[in-house]
Structure formats: C-alpha cells, structure tokens
Write a protein that binds this DNA or RNA. Structure first.
Length: 569
DNA sequence: CGCATTTGACCGGCGC
DNA sequence: GCGCCGGTCAAATGCG
C-alpha cells in the first residue's frame, strides 16, 4: 500500500548500486589511506600508553619505597609487595615477601633482633635493586617517549607536506574529475578492503595518492590556524558526503561551491565506471535489508565491506534548540521511532527523501540530561544535489565526518589513540570543546557540540567566520534557538509562534555558523554557503517535510516505546 | 486519494 | 542459547 512512498523497498541489488554507497566507498578508501599513516602512530601510542601505565604502577615504589625511608620500611614493603608484584614477582618471591612475613612473626613473637636486622638489610637491598630497576625502566620509557614524539611529529609533518604539496600542485579543476578515472587508483582502492578501524598502512607507501579526506582536513586545519585568506575554496572542508554525485548524470545540479567540487574530485578521482553515480532514475530504493549489511550486488566486491564500514561513520550534532528538530534543508521522512535506553525521549529515525535511494539517514533525539538539546546524528552520504539551504549543515557534518574518518581511529581498547587525538587537534585546533570524537559509540562518531554557545567575541579574524553573526541567542535564518535567558514558558511560546515548520525547526548550521568556537574550517564552509545561497531561505521552511515534534520535555509526548509505549492520545 | 506518520513486529548484533 | 537493544519494516492510521 505504502510501497510507493517508501524509497527503500527495493531489491538489494538496486539498493547496493546506489551512488551514495559508491561515494562512501571512495571516501572510505581515502580515509583508510590516511588511517594507514595513523596506524603506525596509533600502534606506537598504544605501546606508549602501556609504558605509561607501567610507569604509573611503578612510580610509587620508586618514590615511597625508596631507600631513603628506611624507618618506614615495613609499610613500604607492603606497598612494594602490592605494587611490584606484577612486574618482579619472580625475583621477589624469596625476598621482601618472605621478609614481610618474617618481620611480622619476629615482632610479634619477640624473636631475635639480629634476624630482624638481617631481614631489614635484605629488604633494603631489595629496595635498592628495585630502585635501580625503576631508574632503568624510566630511562627506557624516556627514550621510547622521545622516539614516539619524534615519529609523531614526522607523521604530522608528512601529512602537512602532503596537503601543501597538493595545494601547490593545484587541484584539478573542480568537477573535472567527474569522468576521470584512474585505473591505478581504482584498483588500489579495492585491493585493501580494510575495516575502517584497521591499521593498514598505505599512506606511507603512497603518500601522494592519499589526497583524501585527511589531506583536505589538514589543509583546512592549516587554514584555520594560519591565514584568514584561506577561508575560501582552498580551505573548504573535505566533504564526507558527496552531495552532488547525482549531478554527474546530467541532472539539474545547482551551482556548487568549491567545497562540492572537492567532493566531485574526491569521488571521481577514485571512482570507476562501475561506480558511476547511479542515475536518479534507476530503480532506487532504500536498502531493504539492514543498513550495515550492504548486501553484495553489482560492482566490485570489495565495495561492500568498505561501504559498510564507512556507512557507520556518523556525525552527531548537538544543538540547543527549543524546536523539535533541527532543520538542515533536506527533506526527511520519518520511518521509525524508538525509545532508546536511558533516555526518556524517543529517538526518531529519518531518511532523506530528496532523492530516491538517497542512503542518508539521521536520528533525532533529545538529550536525556538536557531536553533542550537536540542531538541529530547523520549517517550516510547524499547521492543527489542539495538545495542551498541544506549546504551549511551538510558541509559541516561532512567536514566533521572527514575529521573523524581521517583523524580519529579508535583503538582496540575503545579509547582514542592519543596520536589520533593529536591529529584531530591538529586538524581542528580550536575545536576541542566543540567537536569530540567518540569511540565508545557503536560506530565511529564525531560529535559537534553546539550547545556551548558563547557570545561572539570581538573576532580578530572576522573574515574567517560567517559575517554578520548575531549575538545570543544564535539566530540565523530567522529561526529561534533556545535562549537560556528566557523563561521556559517564553521559550515554548516562542516555539509556537511563527508559521509552521519554520517555527518548529531551527538550523543547526546557523548555530554552527554562529559559534565562535567552531573551527574556522567549518565556519568557512558555512560561510560560503550561507553567504551565497541559503540566506533568508529559512532552513526550517526549506525542509518540505513536516516534522513531528519530539518530546521537548518529560511532560510532552515522550515515553513512546514499542514495548511500554503509552499512547499519547 | 495520495502521502506522511505512527507503531507494533521483526531482525540482527551483542553481551552474558 | 537467551535476552536485550538498536534499527528497520510495513500495515494501520491520520491528514490535507
């Protein structure tokens, strides 16, 4: 009955051929290339961390258990027994441990003092030995750390050189690679179906081939850190979403800024004939199966795993909004709603309906801790041109995703590699409090926290930020955002005022753009779009989708669950 | 009537 | 193997 309305009830083959996946694959490859370079860093980081942990464990021994504190030897020996046991058990079995027992026995039984002294001597010598050992370990650790730092610096330098080389060499004219396919690259990108978090090292082997996301991100990071004049095309953040892939099919594509040309470049430089952007008229459809599966279909086989892994990269945008949903200019269709564990507010699932078969989805959910915060998680890549109103958010999330894919590699233990963080900081030097990368999430997720809005300070580099930024609360596109200074009642009233969707939605891109802390690289992207096209478009209205309000508070229509759902009649 | 939303059911991954 | 949970499907429902 509703088959027609659903974009996705299609055969797997058709769905798998969607352009977005191909783009995802390409981007995945780029990310993996960079991941290769990072892999070494991460591995080193892992060992470094291990060494640090070891040192932390041993440090108390070296300090508190030192020979200078002989009068407290018995106590320190206990500490030693506990702390050192892991590392020098073998030698200490017959040493201090036994001496501890002996001390206790001798003191309690009033035994021979000579024996006690002998025990103390043995303990002393043991401590001295341990101190020596600690010193040696420290020295070793110092050397390892030094080597690690130097190597890390080399990696970063290499990345920067690569990016600068690309800039100097001059990127091919935007969009000119749409038809250009490098067979070598094409083969390369398929020969390593590594997992997204893999440590395969290809970047080091082919430094110039990795003109991918990290490259562009680094380029953007340089821009943000140095020259304000770089806020234009050269510094556009690398698109993690190929918004205009479909344009290659002769579709009516809106004029694209350089950002999207980069996207074209990135897509097509690794594209192949079998990976041409799928025509929009093709039997489109959302993947009938579970998304992460990406059932094998036409095209190169390695596409599937890469697409699947890349598909899982997410960009989460946290924006303080009184509106039900953040409008990003796209058209979304709600296909599900669930109660997420630990959050009284339901999570809504949307998929992009701007083009049939667009694989992009998003989840909208209010923060459990602060219901004024709307968390929008984007996943996937648009396979169609986007309206101007959709560009800001798309570019922002794309840049964030690229940062995630290129600069953050979750480690095996679930934490972020320090090297990765280092790289991320290098990429987004001023975004430490805005963009965070989560490896604890099921999928690699970069979170853009826009809830910490601050009054725009007198910017020393106004050219880097979108012009004419309003003061608090952030308000662009004529849409209201949550204003902490206003009473909730006023907020609610304000949410109701206005016309239709425009009042129900806010533009996260507006928030992003108005955030002075947001990386200039992202702001530059937004600037190019907001300033050019989406001005006055009213991002809320641009979304032709009626958005059901999410429970803005506990008293709202929250609490809908598939199990314990209380129908809000 | 067509379309979008709602919502119960279903499925697969994952942890125990 | 089982249950939990996230995610999706798809029939039912609502709305213009």
């Amino acid at each position: 009955m509703m088959e027609s309305s659903y974009l996705g009830k299609r055969k797997p083959v058709e769905a798998a051929a969607a352009a977005g996946f191909q783009a995802v694959v390409l981007r995945c490859d780029a990310a993996e290339e960079n991941a290769g370079a990072r892999g070494a860093v991460s591995v080193r980081d892992f060992f470094k961390k291990a060494e640090e942990r070891k040192e932390e464990e041993e440090a108390p021994d070296a300090g508190g258990g030192g020979g200078a504190q002989d009068d407290r030897l018995s106590i320190d020996k206990d500490d030693l027994t506990i702390n050192m046991g892991l590392h020098v058990v073998g030698r200490r079995k017959s040493g201090s441990e036994e001496s501890i027992v002996s001390d206790g026995v001798s003191s309690e039984a009033g035994g021979d003092h000579r024996e006690t002294k002998a025990e103390l001597k043995r303990a002393k010598s043991e401590l001295e030995r341990l101190n020596e050992e600690n010193k040696q370990l420290k020295n070793m650790l110092g050397r390892v750390t030094t080597n690690y730092n130097s190597l890390q610096a080399q990696v970063v330098t290499l990345m920067q050189q690569r990016s600068s080389h690309r800039v100097l060499a001059g990127a091919p004219p935007p969009g000119h690679e749409q038809l250009g396919v490098d067979p070598a690259e094409k083969s390369d990108q398929h020969q390593l179906p590594r997992q997204f978090i893999g440590f395969g090292g290809t970047a080091a082997d082919e430094p110039m081939r990795s003109v991918g996301l990290a490259d562009a991100v680094l380029r953007a990071g340089d821009c943000s850190a140095s020259s304000p004049s770089h806020t234009d095309a050269a510094c556009m953040p690398p698109p993690a979403m190929d918004y205009c892939t479909a344009g290659g099919k002769g579709k009516d594509v809106m004029p694209l800024p350089a950002f999207d040309h980069h996207s074209h470049h990135r897509v097509h430089e690794m594209g192949s004939s079998s990976e041409d952007p799928p025509p929009l008229h093709m039997p489109q459809g959302w993947l009938p199966g579970k998304v992460p599966k990406f059932l094998p279909a036409k095209g190169p086989e390695p596409v599937v795993p890469e697409a699947a892994t890349m598909r899982k990269a997410r960009v989460s945008v946290r924006a303080r909004s009184e509106a039900a949903m953040i409008s990003d200019g796209c058209q979304w269709r709600k296909y599900g709603q669930k109660m997420a564990k630990g959050n009284p507010c339901p999570r809504a699932y949307y998929r992009c309906t701007m083009a049939a078969g667009c694989p992009v989805r998003k989840q909208v959910q209010r923060c459990a801790e602060d219901t004024t915060v709307v968390i929008t998680t984007y996943e996937g890549n648009h396979n169609h041109p986007l309206p101007p109103a959709a560009m800001p958010m798309a570019s922002t999330t794309a840049a964030a995703a690229s940062m995630l894919l290129s600069g953050s590699m979750p480690s095996a233990d679930g934490s972020l590699m320090a090297g990765s963080n280092f790289l991320a900081r290098a990429v987004l030097p001023c975004s430490s409090n805005v963009a965070t990368i989560s490896a604890s999430a099921p999928f690699p997720t970069v979170t853009l926290d826009l809830t910490q809005q601050q009054p725009p300070p007198p910017s020393p580099e106004p050219s880097q930020l979108p012009a004419a930024r309003p003061a608090q609360p952030p308000q662009l596109f004529g849409q209201k955002l949550y204003d902490p200074s206003r009473p909730p009642a006023v907020q609610a009233a304000a949410a109701d005022e206005g016309a239709g969707a425009a009042a129900d939605t806010v533009s996260a891109a507006a928030v992003i753009a108005s955030d002075p802390n947001f990386p200039a690289v992202l702001a530059a992207a937004i600037k190019s779009y907001i300033g050019g096209s989406s001005s006055g478009s009213g991002a809320g209205g641009s979304s032709g989708t009626t958005v059901p309000p999410l429970p803005a508070s506990s008293g709202g229509d929250s609490g809908r669950d598939d199990k314990t759902r209380e129908q809000d009649s």
